[in-house]
C-alpha cells in the first residue's frame, strides 16, 4: 500500500490504521468462510458420521464383549473394550478429520470462482494474498472446530469408559491438527489453480497418502545405496532427495503414541514444539505456493 492511499483511508475517518485494514479484510473473509463452511452438507455429513462412529464405538464394544468376557479376568476385559473404543475413535478422527480437511481446503476457493462471489470480493480494496489468507484462515477455523468437536466426544467416551481424565488427548489433538494443517495447506495451494473442487480433492488425498509413505523412500534409499549398480544408486539418491523435501506425516505418529503409551512411560515431549514448527513451515510453504499460483490467475 502506498503512502498516499494510507492517507486517503485514514482521511475517511471510520477506517483506521494500516495494520488494522490489513487484518480486518482477511478476518472478515475468514469469518464468512467459516459461516459458509459449517453449512456445507458434505462436511456436516462427515462430521455426523464421525460422531456416530465415535459415539457408537461404546455400543460396538458392548456387543463384542459378549464373546470376550470371562469370569477370571473380568477386569482385563473391560480394558480391551477401552482399547477398542480408543482405536475406533483414533481411526474415526484420522479418517473423517482428514476428509473434512481435504474437502474444505479443496473447495473454498473454487466454489467462489464458480459462483462469482470472488468478483465482488476482489474488486474491493483487498489484495489477492489477503483474500487467500482470509480463506485459509477460515478453513483452519473449520478444521479446528471439527477436531475439537470430535475430540470432545472421544474425550467423553474415554472418560465414561475408563473414568480417568485423558488430559494427554489435548496434546494428541493439537498434533493431529498440525498434521492436518500440512495437508490442508498443500490442498489449498492446488485448489487455487482449479475452478472445480474435484481435482484438488483428489490431489489432497494423494498428498495425505504420499505424506504417509515418505518413509518408504528412506527404505528405498537404504536398500539402493548398498547396491553396486549405478542405476540403483541413482534411484536411491532421488528417493533420498524426495524424502528430504516431501512432508513426512509419519512424524506425527507421536499423536497416537501419546494415547497408547502408559502414563508412566510418556513420549519425549521435546518432539511437540518441533512438530508444531514443522507443521507451520509447511503451512507457510503451502500458503505461499497458493499466493504464487493465484497472483496472476485469470478469474
Amino acid at each position: 500500500m502506498s503512502a498516499e492511499s494510507t492517507a486517503v483511508i485514514s482521511a475517511e475517518g471510520s477506517r483506521s490504521g494500516v495494520l488494522g485494514s490489513y487484518i480486518r479484510g482477511p478476518w472478515a473473509i475468514a469469518a464468512y468462510t467459516w459461516k459458509e463452511g459449517i453449512r456445507k452438507k458434505t462436511l456436516l455429513g462427515f462430521l455426523l458420521l464421525s460422531l456416530l462412529v465415535i459415539f457408537g464405538s461404546t455400543f460396538m464394544t458392548a456387543f463384542m464383549a459378549s464373546t470376550t468376557i470371562s469370569s477370571t479376568t473380568a477386569n482385563v476385559e473391560i480394558e480391551v473394550e477401552a482399547k477398542i473404543i480408543k482405536d475406533i475413535c483414533v481411526s474415526a478422527i484420522a479418517i473423517f478429520g482428514i476428509l473434512i480437511t481435504i474437502f474444505i481446503s479443496a473447495s473454498v476457493v473454487p466454489t467462489e470462482l464458480e459462483n462469482k462471489v470472488v468478483y465482488t470480493i476482489l474488486s474491493k480494496p483487498l489484495r489477492r494474498y489477503q483474500y487467500l489468507a482470509g480463506k485459509f484462515l477460515g478453513v483452519q477455523l473449520i478444521v479446528i472446530a471439527n477436531l475439537v468437536l470430535m475430540s470432545t466426544l472421544f474425550f467423553v467416551a474415554l472418560y465414561a469408559k475408563e473414568g480417568i481424565w485423558p488430559s494427554l488427548l489435548l496434546w494428541s489433538a493439537l498434533l493431529t491438527y498440525f498434521q492436518f494443517l500440512i495437508v490442508s495447506a498443500f490442498t489449498f495451494a492446488v485448489s487455487c489453480t482449479s475452478t472445480s473442487s474435484v481435482l484438488p480433492t483428489i490431489a489432497g488425498l494423494f498428498i495425505y497418502i504420499i505424506g504417509n509413505l515418505t518413509e518408504y523412500l528412506q527404505d528405498v534409499y537404504e536398500k539402493g545405496v548398498e547396491s553396486e549398480r549405478l542405476f540403483d544408486t541413482m534411484i536411491a539418491n532421488i528417493a533420498h532427495g524426495l524424502y528430504l523435501v516431501l512432508p513426512n506425516l509419519r512424524n506425527f505418529d507421536m499423536k497416537d503414541q501419546i494415547l497408547y503409551l502408559p502414563s508412566n512411560d510418556p513420549p519425549v515431549d521435546i518432539m511437540i514444539p518441533n512438530l508444531i514448527a514443522y507443521g507451520l513451515v509447511f503451512a507457510a510453504v503451502g500458503y505461499l505456493l497458493a499466493w504464487v499460483l493465484f497472483a496472476r490467475k485469470e478469474l
Binding site: M1, S2, E4, S5, V8, I9, E12, S21, Y32, K35, E36, N115, K116, V117, Y119, T120, S123, K124, P125, L126
Partner: peptide
C-alpha cells in the same frame, strides 16, 4: 491500488450472494 479500489464500485453479472 487501494485508493483506486476505494473509488470503484462493481456489480458483476449474475453473481451469487450467500
Amino acid at each position: 491500488a487501494y485508493d483506486i479500489r476505494m473509488k470503484i464500485g462493481f456489480l458483476p453479472e449474475g453473481a451469487y450472494y450467500p
